[in-house]
């Protein structure tokens, strides 16, 4: 799969879910891509590097989201 295609798949899937959530586990991303975690990781790393995705963490777990999509408010259960 091309990187651009993978990025498009992920962004489209995440945007669809934006109303209900803005932060996603790595597992959610590998499911969207339909890949084993190790293969998905290469694409996901690149998406972060390219600014398509960004990390969020509580310190103990990590999540991914589209940059600037109200992640902090979600963490505090405001939405």
């Amino acid at each position: 799969m091309e990187q651009a295609e993978a990025a498009e798949m992920v962004v489209e899937a995440l945007r669809k879910k934006l109303k209900s959530k803005s932060k996603f586990y790595f597992n959610d991303l590998s499911k969207i891509l339909g890949m084993k975690p190790r293969a998905a990781k290469k694409y996901v790393n690149k998406m972060v590097e390219d600014g398509v995705l960004e990390y969020w963490s509580s310190g103990s777990t990590s999540m991914y989201g589209i940059p600037g999509t109200g992640k902090q408010a979600a963490a505090e259960h405001e939405d």
Partner: peptide, 16 residues
């Protein structure tokens, strides 16, 4: 507040 920024450029950890 709960959570947030996680690292320096290219890192997904090391900063809480």
């Amino acid at each position: 507040k709960h959570g947030g920024i996680v690292g320096v450029f290219g890192y997904g950890g090391g900063v809480i």
